[in-house]
């Protein structure tokens, strides 16, 4: 099997902060790898190294069979990058942005123009195509940014938190766009903070924490490891917590979590709605009154809790880049 992305022992420090601490990644051709982790876990740093924007301190890194450290120019010809900060020019129109990128990929004048129009159509930006980007919504900017990454039909596509900060509708739209790309056979590495996103889009998921991989596998394998869904109940009386916990333990994969302040119990389960019905039945048999109950998908926080025993906290000393990015994000919000 050919691997389009291969890193081993990747290390990157920002001063004293360790952003990557020996990260190994392998992405077979035509598959999608989801890099899942909280802010500051090192996701962006990994992408920046893979896309030639940053030199690693240690380790080897290969994209499309090329050594990123020694042949960055060749790598750049074969990759596309779309980041969490839409890297498009505010003052240019959508069309001008894409045309510029195409020219810089050296597609030539005529092909660049045609490609720009084609991509605008494909990303439903034809109407907005001749308006300056500063009039675009957040979702439109992301789509344009993704279109820019696809200009040269790259063999490997890097998507850095493609839906962070988008409203639910734009997110769903972005997901279907990415799914379409994936069906087309692209090799993709995407980073995300959302379990649901990784579940939907990725063949393989690598969970990273503090610069190293802490779990790896298909979405199903990970779910089996951490329990599928979560049953969450909120009780009316705090006194009922211990008996309720005992009941839930019978269904739970792993420990039941108890939050005494909110009288909330969370259990990882694998049986879906059936389990929920049984839980409710047992609770009512025990005369425990319930204020709220529900079944939900595991979040990143649940994944972390199961895998590491700690919450998906943000690294306190954010790395230089994350600080930088959040300030950019703010600037951009201000500009809008």
């Amino acid at each position: 099997m050919t691997h389009m992305i291969r890193t081993s022992g990747l290390v990157k420090h920002y001063g004293k902060v360790v952003a990557l601490d020996g990260l190994d990644l392998l992405v077979p051709k035509g598959t999608v790898l989801g890099l899942l982790g909280p802010n500051g876990a090192g996701k962006t740093t990994a992408i920046r190294i893979l896309t030639t924007l940053l030199e690693p301190d240690e380790g080897s890194v290969e994209v499309a069979g090329l050594d990123v450290r020694t042949q960055p120019d060749k790598v750049r010809e074969r990759i596309g990058l779309s980041g969490q900060n839409a890297a498009v020019d505010e003052h240019l129109t959508g069309y001008e942005n894409l045309d510029m990128v195409a020219r810089l990929y050296h597609l030539g004048r005529r092909r660049s123009k045609a490609r720009a129009r084609e991509l605008l159509g494909r990303f439903e930006l034809t109407e907005a195509g001749d308006r300056p980007v500063k009039t675009y919504s957040g979702g439109m900017r992301r789509r344009l940014d993704l279109a820019a990454a696809l200009v040269a039909e790259p063999e490997v596509l890097f998507l850095d938190e493609p839906t962070t900060g988008l409203d639910p509708r734009s997110r769903a739209q972005m997901w279907s766009t990415i799914q379409e790309l994936v069906r087309g056979g692209s090799t993709v590495l995407l980073t995300t903070q959302y379990m649901e996103e990784a579940d939907r889009l990725a063949n393989d998921i690598v969970v990273i924490d503090r610069g190293r991989a802490i779990a790896q596998g298909t979405a199903d394998e990970l779910k089996a490891q951490i329990g599928g869904e979560r049953v969450e109940t909120v009780l009316a009386n705090a006194a009922d917590l211990p008996p309720a916990q005992a009941i839930l333990s019978g269904f739970s994969v792993g420990e039941v979590q108890v939050d005494e302040q909110t009288r909330r119990l969370t259990a990882a389960v694998t049986g879906g709605a059936d389990v929920l019905r049984h839980v409710l039945q047992r609770l009512s048999e025990a005369n425990i009154s319930v204020v709220d109950v529900g079944l939900r998908r595991p979040t990143l926080d649940d994944v972390f809790l199961s895998l590491t025993g700690h919450h998906a906290e943000e690294v306190e000393e954010s790395t230089a880049d994350e600080l930088d990015e959040s300030s950019h994000e703010r600037e951009r919000e201000d500009a809008r």
Binding site: T52, R76, I79, L81, A87, L104
Partner: peptide
């Protein structure tokens, strides 16, 4: 240099001095 567009430029196979 403060904008994301520089990342775009640097990830493209364009001249480093362009």
């Amino acid at each position: 240099m403060t904008k994301g567009i520089i990342d775009r430029f640097r990830s493209l196979p364009m001249s480093r001095s362009a």
